[in-house]
Amino acid sequence: MSQENSTSQFQGKTAIISGGAEGIGLSIAKALGEQQMNVVLADIDKDNLERARLELQSLGVPVLAVSLDVADEGQWQSAAEAAVERFGKIHMVVNNAGVGGDSGPIESQEKEGWQWALDVNLMGVVYGAKVIVPLIKEHGEGGWIINVASMAGMGGVPYSGAYNATKAAVVALSEAWSEELKSKSIHVAVLCPAFVQTRIYDSERNRPAQYKSKTLRPGDESSFSKRAREMVQNGIDGALVGKRVVEALNEGELYIFTHPNYRPVVQYRSARIDEAFVNAGKSPLLQHLVDQKLDML
């Protein structure tokens, strides 16, 4: 339902968006700006960040731009302080910043590439929530956490081990945080897009020196990486993603999907998991557990 002619639940509130200078992050920023939110753009790319700030400003969106490497918890603290100084309160964090990481067969994976993906895609989300959630709790008005994962978090993609693992972790974190924060009126959602027209395939441009591969040469690219690049370039328009996020948040959705045509992929995985439970239930070794009461927190 359009919010254009009615009061939006987001109006006058503040969102901080990591990786907000382009792609999905900027799309979400624009969509939230249309809902009359204050927007804090946070990004590691200072040139893109300034261009994005000017674009939002030209659209009449109250905007603040802050430099942020999401893998550095201290920088998250600084970004949060700047946001509070400018807008008073923070109501939403969009943990969007992410990298594609290295791709290729198992034996080609290097520690540096794995650490890069873990620090940005996973710890960047952890730090974002760790820093912002207390600020949302503090004002007591409730709010939102939107974590950007991927369809890769719903089912493994060959030759993308680090990306798969970090995105699956983000899905699991979001599920856990959803239950943990429900009583505080903080809604958690996890965005799982398939291919979207972004520059995720060109993450290398922002790769810090400590994560550089010791053996890969500039320009090295696997056949899988080339195919993935083509699929991203032919993906859906990024502008759709931000609008879809607003739509889903208005409906209180936990999992935000942008590609309904991927439903059979998740259904296939779910069927295999269910079959595994059936097999476990048939095992003579496990009969004493079949009717045992669940032990849950």
Rank of each mutant, 00 (worst) to 15 (best):
D220P: 04
A189E: 00
E110H: 05
L135A: 09
G74R: 11
M123N: 06
I90Y: 04
A15D: 01
Y211I: 11
E81R: 14
W116Q: 02
W177T: 03
G140V: 08
S18K: 02
R269C: 07
A31L: 01
A168W: 12
S67L: 13
S225C: 12
S223V: 12
I132A: 04
T198V: 09
E253W: 12
G242A: 03
S183V: 10
G281R: 02
E251S: 14
A239R: 06
L286A: 13
F87Q: 03
G128W: 07
G124M: 05
A129S: 15
P260T: 04
V39K: 03
F277H: 04
N206M: 13
A15K: 03
R263I: 14
G33W: 01
E253H: 13
V61I: 08
L64K: 02
V125E: 00
P158R: 05
I16P: 01
Q197F: 09
N48H: 11
D47Q: 15
G143C: 01
D274K: 11
G124L: 07
N5H: 15
V265N: 15
I186V: 11
S2W: 11
K130P: 03
G60F: 05
C192P: 02
L216S: 13
V63C: 00
D119Q: 07
T215C: 09
A194E: 13
G33C: 01
M296Q: 13
L216N: 12
E107W: 09
E221T: 04
L26H: 04
T258M: 04
V120T: 08
S67P: 14
Y211N: 09
A65L: 00
Q267R: 15
A42I: 03
L54Y: 11
T198F: 09
F87H: 04
E112H: 08
Y255W: 02
V84C: 00
R205G: 06
L216Y: 15
W114G: 03
V148T: 00
K130H: 07
I273P: 11
I44T: 06
Q233M: 11
W116A: 02
S108C: 10
D72E: 12
V131P: 03
P284I: 00
K89L: 11
Q292L: 13
H139N: 02
T166E: 00
N96S: 02
T14D: 01
A152M: 07
W116K: 06
I24W: 01
R272G: 11
A189S: 06
L294F: 14
W144R: 00
Y262Q: 15
N279W: 15
E4A: 13
E85P: 05
V93Q: 06
I44L: 08
A117C: 12
G242N: 04
A176P: 11
A165E: 05
L249C: 06
G219Q: 08
A248F: 02
Y255N: 00
L181N: 03
A31N: 04
F257G: 10
F224V: 03
I146K: 07
S225Q: 12
A280Y: 09
Q109G: 13
V196W: 01
E204L: 15
Q11I: 13
V265E: 14
G128A: 08
Y159W: 08
T7E: 15
R217I: 15
